[in-house]
Amino acid sequence: MSSQVSQQDSVEQSVRAPAGTINVVDPNPLNWLFITWNTMEEPVRTDERGHIVGAVMEDSRWLDDTTFQVDVRRGIRYQDGEDLTAHNVKRAFDEVQRWKVPHPPGTSLNFHPDATAEVVDDYTVRIYFPEPDGLVLGKFRGMHVPSTRFWEEEGFGYTKNGTGEGHW
């Protein structure tokens, strides 16, 4: 049985193993964001047609009008080997909440300044809003969830500018 499984894994790997190099020229002024989205993940991403789908977030629900619960996907690892858990999601939320205008497109992507996050367990995060936020999923698209090492060594503008304002 185990031999069959590993044979199947091997076939899948040969089919799906990354191959080839491409050279790209991208004059789009949002290239900085596209590089971030190719290398980091957020609770959600968009599919080919632009619809929001889960990424780091496997599922979510409103527990009441102001409490939003996120189920963090299991089995995600950062490129440096760290496991991605609810603690990383809370860290990302806490970091973005430190700044008044963190996102280049502006404050329309902000969460309410009094919103807070709580780790329920390793794969569950709850966000408490002072008022209902029907736009939370769209805002999640701008909440990158990087590794602990990123926060410690780089941050969004922390090392370069000494602030995260305008640099998410």
Binding site: N31, I35, N38, Q79, D80, H144, S147, F150, E154
Partner: peptide, 21 residues
């Protein structure tokens, strides 16, 4: 935005050289 290469994320690609800021 990311100002330096590194294994910072969990995305499909790792930024190994350069930056776009």
């Amino acid at each position: 935005m990311i100002d330096a290469p590194g294994p910072w994320g969990s995305g499909p690609f790792t930024l190994i050289e350069g930056y776009s800021s």
